[in-house]
Amino acid sequence: MSRFSPLEWPVLRQLRGADPLGRGSAVTSARTRATTPRTATADRVVRSICPYCAVGCGQRIFVKDDKVVQIEGDPDSPISRGRLCPKGAASEQLVNFPNRVTTVRYRAPHATDWQDLDLDTALDMIADRFLEARRAHWEDLDEKGHPLRRTMGIASLGGATIDNEENYLAKKLFTAAGAIQMENQARI
Rank of each mutant, 00 (worst) to 15 (best):
Q185R: 06
Y168P: 02
A155V: 03
D142K: 03
A54I: 02
K64P: 04
R134H: 10
G24D: 08
G159W: 12
A133C: 00
A122T: 02
A90V: 00
D65A: 10
D120I: 06
N184F: 07
G22F: 08
M152K: 14
Q93L: 04
R135V: 00
R13L: 00
R134K: 15
D128E: 14
C53V: 01
A90I: 03
T103R: 14
D118T: 05
T175A: 14
G24Q: 05
M125W: 12
V45Y: 13
V45W: 12
R47D: 08
D120Y: 11
E132S: 04
D128N: 05
R47E: 14
G145W: 15
S5C: 09
G145N: 09
R44Y: 14
G82N: 07
E72D: 14
V11H: 13
L157Q: 07
A179E: 00
Y106C: 00
T103D: 15
A179M: 02
M182W: 05
R83G: 11
A160D: 09
G17P: 00
S80Y: 08
D19T: 01
E143Q: 08
C50I: 00
I61G: 06
D65P: 00
A26R: 00
P147R: 09
I61C: 15
S80G: 07
P78T: 12
G24W: 05
P86I: 05
V27S: 09
A18Q: 09
A186V: 00
D163I: 08
R38Y: 13
C57R: 00
G158T: 03
